[in-house]
Amino acid sequence: MQYLVSVIDDKGTPGSTDRQPAISAFNDRLIAEGYWVFAGGLADTDAATVVDNRGEQPVFSDGPFVESKEYLAGVWVWEAPDLDVALKLAAEASKACDRKIEVRPFQ
């Protein structure tokens, strides 16, 4: 089963900025053990653009779709046999990133 693993940062109390080596080492392990499907860090929410073309004309607006203190800082997609495996990895991911992690299965 595939899980979307979201890294959640907080503008009020951001995680530390020196995590790249730990994250890289963790990614290497995810790849070696066959869990890794995809990973990517995201640019700041200021860089987001929302597009709404449900009406007659596409409307572009600056900024994220929802303004909040907590925001999505990056994602993984993992392939794991069950939630216990995913949660165990997520606990390690949270340490590696120094941030909160949300685990959510794909349908």
Binding site: M1, P81, D82, L83, D84, V103, R104, P105, Q107
Partner: peptide
Amino acid sequence: KATRIPYRVPAAED
């Protein structure tokens, strides 16, 4: 069901 919580006795360490 959706998240696949396993039907299993946890490993000794857990």
